[in-house]
Each structure stands twice: as C-alpha cells, then as structure tokens.
C-alpha cells in the first residue's frame, strides 16, 4: 500500500556529527521506531528551506517533511510492505 498524505506528526531526532536522524515518530496514537535512515534531500521553496527524510522500520517506509522556518514535521508518504 502506497499512500500520499500530509499529516502532522511528532518526531524525536538524534543529532550525530553533521546529521540529524529521525528516530521515533508519534503519528496519532501510534509510535514508530525507525531503524533505517535511507536518504535525506533538501528543497528550497523560495527562500524557505525544507528537508525530506526517507526512513523505514521493519514494515513501513515513511517520507517526512521538515520545515526549518516553522519547525513543523509532517508525514507525506507512507509505503507499507505486503
């Protein structure tokens, strides 16, 4: 199942060297612990910097959007295996 969405989430991140890694995600009443940090890419929307994090656990792939201006996290893509 591959879904596009745009839902607010809470994210616990780990700072390591120059990298920021989303580790735990609270989406609604569920908590997901991410164990793979696959890709990060930044996008400039005008002068606003937005980062997208592609992360996964054992069954879900999630694409997270982080706005550096508002410090807001959103879940924008979800792919569930099977």
């Amino acid at each position: 199942m591959h879904q596009l969405l745009n839902e607010p989430i809470e994210v616990l991140v780990e700072f390591k060297g120059k990298h920021v890694k989303p580790r735990r995600i609270r989406w609604g009443n569920n908590i997901y612990d991410m164990n793979a940090f696959n890709l990060v890419h930044g996008v400039l929307e005008g002068t606003k910097q937005v980062f997208y994090f592609s992360v996964s656990d054992a069954t879900n792939f999630m694409k997270l959007r982080f706005e550096t201006e508002s410090l807001e996290w959103r879940l924008v893509e979800l792919y569930t295996d099977g």
Partner: peptide, 29 residues
C-alpha cells in the same frame, strides 16, 4: 534513487512515471 529511499522497493520491478508527485492533485489531503 527511489530504491535507496524506500528499501521495500529494492529487488522489485519498479518504474518511475513521467508524472511527478506534484502532478497529482493533493489539495484535498
């Protein structure tokens, strides 16, 4: 690149469409 971002796509037959995510009307979401 998509297989790198999403490990569940690795080893599978995938194709990237000429239409991007932005071409899908997500205004309602």
């Amino acid at each position: 690149v998509e297989q790198q971002a999403n490990p569940f796509l690795r080893g599978k037959a995938i194709a990237i469409a000429g239409k991007g995510v932005d071409s899908i009307d997500l205004s309602h979401t």
